[in-house]
Design a protein around this nucleic acid. Structure first.
Lengths: 204, 204
DNA sequence: ATTATCTATAGATCTATAGATAATGC
DNA sequence: ATTATCTATAGATCTATAGATAATGC
């Protein structure tokens, strides 16, 4: 420890922070290490004293962003309930600020193409949030058990709808998609079973 | 026309076809022109006699893939109904073959970062499919009007859930997510209103 | 003395262009 | 004669590494 104590950690932290934002804003493949290091006020040569590879950084940024989102979600659920969290997720503010937003909406399809270790990290760090969502849904449905997979489908609605709102160039239509997403999510979160799940036995 | 008639069109077609598959499999930013041209049995120098830029090719591949998916959707809805289409969309086969699958699930988050012209093309070519979905949902809900934005939210559920299934490394859990997605989609497509949309007036 | 930083560079790849070559119709 | 193809290359960027320099504690 010859540099000031915490110097190394602070630099590493700036790198992860910059990468975490840039990846969500521009995509993982589209962002080079030079840009990340420059945003962290370092030159590119230093990168490999902090990380083994770009992929190692990707794993860390996903873990950090998912942990941070977990805390946000916990707060939102404590403050209100599922409805409040849904409205915050499908808000114009979230749509317009991907760099600090949900890593799943920004990067899930790209993560799906990354090595298994990266997907594993993504899944492990997503699990606690999904379990929180499952709890919230369960409470809304009168305590009926909701699986993690069910929570994933609910979350898929949120993330997929946010992506469509982001891809839609017409501003009014994009807003309308967010609002429709809120309606759909609240409908899904509602207490009653849709008749189709009981009326139509799932074949296969 | 000195080369055989249709020669140019055939080559151009192979390029779009290869790019359309590769982009969905690996992402737009991750695939270079050399790889695309090589898959089309051409060398990279020829690219610019067919397209003005990589971005122009991206627009064409999105349009082509969305048109093709529209036809598939039309067939599925004619053959059965929304339920059949949902089960085909959230199937292991679709999850495991992104190259021929839904361009929205594969590329929506990346398209959101592309120039307005690309997003415009994406939105325009998505509209007919969304309108078909809206029709299908409307039929299921006893003829009640369903907007394109509502259809987009429904479609967001499908695309988002498929992405999560693709990103999930555990095979059993990935299958479970697909099944939960089917349940959620059928619940959303069901005739009754969830109570929350009527019981809780949408503030804001 | 140790360690994080810097500059510099290797070697591969990226998009795009230039100019020569080959394939065909007139 | 025309046009799609090829080879070759420009110039920028990518990930990763090597070796010199600067910042600190002992």
């Amino acid at each position: 420890m010859r540099y000031a104590p915490g110097h190394n950690e602070a630099a590493r932290d700036r790198i992860v922070e910059a990468a975490s934002r840039l990846f969500r804003e521009e995509g993982i493949a589209a962002v080079g290490l030079a840009k990340i290091m420059s945003e962290a006020d370092l030159t590119v040569g230093t990168f490999y004293t902090h990380f083994k590879s770009k992929e190692a950084l990707v794993r860390e940024t996903l873990v950090r962003a998912l942990k941070s989102r977990y805390l946000d979600l916990e707060r939102a659920l404590r403050a209100g309930d599922v409805e409040l969290a849904v409205r915050a997720y499908l808000s114009p503010a979230h749509r317009d600020a991907p760099g600090l937003g949900c890593p799943t909406a920004a990067l899930a399809s790209e993560v799906a193409r990354h090595p298994r270790g990266t997907r594993q990290a993504f899944a492990s760090e997503s699990a606690p949030s999904l379990d929180l969502v499952a709890e919230g849904l369960s409470a809304r449905r009168g305590g009926k058990k909701v699986s993690r997979a069910d929570a994933a489908a609910f979350f898929g609605l949120l993330a997929g709808t946010l992506q469509l709102a982001r891809a839609t160039p017409d501003h009014a239509e994009s807003d309308a998609i967010l609002e429709a997403g809120v309606r759909a999510a609240l409908r899904l979160a509602s207490a009653d079973d849709g008749p189709s799940t009981t009326a139509r036995p799932r074949s296969r």
